[in-house]
Design a protein around this nucleic acid. Structure first.
Lengths: 207, 207
DNA sequence: TGACTTGGTGAACATAGTTAACTATGCTGT
DNA sequence: ACAGCATAGTTAACTATGTTCACCAAGTCA
């Protein structure tokens, strides 16, 4: 009997409905709008029903994050993967980060700017690690190819430096839109930062 | 009669007590711990009493932010002010930012990583603008002294680029402490980023 | 058929921010 | 001196939140 598989399918379907509702609320109205009751309303359930599918609100949010993180990581991999030059791969990845932040500020905030206390028992962070590793691999390749200054040997530090520079552009944009400090166009800033930091890290002479 | 001044002093004193209590809760237990009732408990008031001094919770938090922002800006100015070389001033400012973030992560989060919707009627953001201007002035000086690449002419973009790079290091540290991605020591990363981006922006040849 | 499991409901609880009504106290103008 | 008033506080309540618990209906299985 395929009855058990059908049950599983149904369960997965309502789980997905919950996640979609949460995501939509989240994207259109921001973090605070994502209440259990409003999610439930949107799919004509009760708030309590959600607890049949997620242990608590945080886990639900985590699931949204994890899913979208994976989407992002896949898109990033696709956009970057076929570029041969590691430095150029890094630049592409950096611009992709900022693009993502500009397009989905709420997501970016939740993905990268919210401390999620590494809940026990959640296999979370896998997609995040993936995204990180894409950049890290490119850095390692560039390092191996001798494209960076000879005093730079720790791929962790270099990866972090690059990630931080790009993240800064995105985070500033997300946090400061409509703020008290004038904002420059994030994509231009991203380009300037990427070029500058890559140039600053690069081995001299090539040109 | 000095009676009105005394009243004002008293009012300012309890206002300060409220702010101190809020700040302490905020620093030691994080954002979520700062509830009106807990603040009030700590100074042996009722939650409702706080509304005699602040229109709502957000305004109270804003006041904490504004005060600490000013402290930070002053410290920054002091640390940077007597350095003659503009590039060196920029570097000092960058490292100070990261120091601040490492020392007061909750503050840094609230100051720089939380969208505060520019509430109508709040004269907020003045201290933030100050901190921004310190960096901006240094950039303008460096620009005027011809220390940057000739294609870099917009001080807004350059300031943002530098600010973003440094902010990235701090923000990454604050958001990712205990996260799923290994973290490099933020001060080393800050140094690498500062040096790299300054070098990348700098006019070639000098050396 | 009768027990069990699953996925849902409805009511309730604790804790938030916030507000309204009230009170005490001390200042002020006559 | 006193009537009025502004100030700073309290108490109790309202609403919204996350979450839990007792219950229920329907499908599954022995």
């Amino acid at each position: 009997m395929g009855t058990v598989e059908r049950r599983e399918r149904e369960r997965a379907a309502t789980r997905a409905k919950i996640l979609d509702a949460a995501r939509e609320l989240f994207v259109t109205e921001g973090y605070d709008a994502v209440t259990m009751r409003r999610i439930a309303d949107r799919i004509e359930y009760t708030a309590a029903a959600l607890y049949r599918h997620f242990p608590d609100r945080q886990a639900l949010l985590d699931a949204v994050v994890e899913a979208d993180f994976r989407t992002f990581a896949d898109a990033l991999r696709a956009r970057v993967g076929d570029e041969a030059d590691p430095i150029e791969r890094i630049r592409l990845a950096g611009l992709a980060y900022v693009d993502f932040a500009v397009r989905y500020p709420s997501h970016y905030r939740l993905l990268f700017m919210t401390p999620r206390p590494e809940r026990p028992g959640s296999a979370s962070g896998a997609a995040g690690r993936d995204a990180y590793l894409i950049l890290r691999r490119a850095v390692e390749a560039a390092l191996a190819a001798g494209r960076f200054r000879p005093d730079l040997t720790d791929p962790g530090v270099v990866t972090h430096a690059l990630w931080a520079a790009v993240h800064g552009v995105a985070a500033l944009h997300v946090a400061r839109q409509g703020g008290s400090v004038p904002e420059a166009e994030p994509r231009s800033v991203a380009a300037v930062v990427c070029d500058a930091v890559l140039d600053g890290l690069a081995r001299r002479r090539p040109r």
